[in-house]
């Protein structure tokens, strides 16, 4: 366990060292959230509700989506691609720690460096728009439930990012992988559009997929749309998916590590 803590701490430090990086990464996703914000603002012109969401609820949902998107370090693809390209991955393999465990520790280390400022910025944004009515949590239970779901979502998303980063064993183009993974998770978890805005049947299916746990579940618990047993079941589903994706990552890793070739002689 100490080894993993050391790896997480190392990643925390190097994430801090490239201080400009995560601030810029945050701004980058802020651009998209901003686009959505203004788009819906224009869309709500003359309407009081869309798919049962008021403008205030939509705003709150998007803010939680932004928070959840930035709580997770998404530079894993870049790091892993680099270490495969340079052959450093061999050094990682020599360490007496589990590869997936080490990468997840790195991700959590980055969360500490990256997520804390993201949290602060989100709070600042929340305060700034408070006057235009971002909603508070619907109750103490909702606040706690949302926090649990959000925390679980961090692990879930890290596991998803890890699995997609393994694709770098087959391609040098990590940028493309990172972008399509981001497009997929951001759309299907609700970070861009509340899942309720999808056609009802599609939304129901999406809520059964692993991505919903990242944004939709915490956001709906926060807004009081998921309460009691329903909220509990949603969090259970999220936990189940977390375990499943972690396991899937291990299977994928076994296939990927067979790809490791040693360059030169």
């Amino acid at each position: 366990m100490r080894a993993y803590a050391a790896i997480a701490s190392r990643q925390f430090q190097s994430a801090l060292q490239y201080r400009g990086n995560y601030a810029l990464g945050m701004l980058s996703s802020l651009a998209l959230v901003l686009a959505m914000f203004f788009f819906w603002h224009a869309g709500f012109d003359g309407r009081s509700a869309i798919a049962g969401y008021s403008w205030a609820q939509t705003k709150t949902y998007l803010l939680i989506g932004y928070l959840s998107a930035n709580l997770v370090a998404t530079s894993s693809e870049a790091r892993m691609s680099e270490s495969i390209r340079t052959g450093n991955v061999l050094c990682d393999l020599l360490l007496p720690v589990d590869f997936q465990g080490a990468r997840l520790s790195e991700a959590l280390g980055s969360v500490a460096a990256q997520g804390v400022p993201a949290l602060l910025v989100t709070l600042a944004v929340a305060v700034a728009v408070a006057f235009s009515g971002v909603l508070p949590p619907s109750g103490i239970g909702a606040a706690l439930g949302a926090a649990v779901a959000l925390g679980l979502g961090v692990v879930l998303k890290s596991a998803i990012v890890y699995a997609s980063a393994l694709v770098c064993f087959w391609t040098t183009n990590y940028v493309g992988i990172a972008w399509s993974r981001a497009a997929l998770t951001n759309l299907l978890c609700g970070a861009l559009v509340p899942l309720a805005f999808f056609p009802a049947g599609v939304a129901a299916v999406l809520r059964w997929l692993p991505f919903a746990g990242i944004t939709d579940t915490p956001a709906r618990i926060y807004l009081g749309q998921l309460v009691g047993v329903h909220a509990f079941l949603a969090v259970c589903l999220e936990a189940a998916w977390t375990v499943a994706v972690l396991f899937g990552g291990r299977v994928l890793w076994r296939a990927a590590s067979a790809q490791v070739t040693i360059h030169g002689g």
Binding site: F12, Q13, L16, Q17, R19
Partner: peptide, 14 residues
């Protein structure tokens, strides 16, 4: 110039 370790990172940041 960056002192090693966590505190070094933070100090260099500041």
């Amino acid at each position: 110039l960056r002192a090693p370790g966590l505190s070094g990172s933070v100090r260099h940041l500041l």
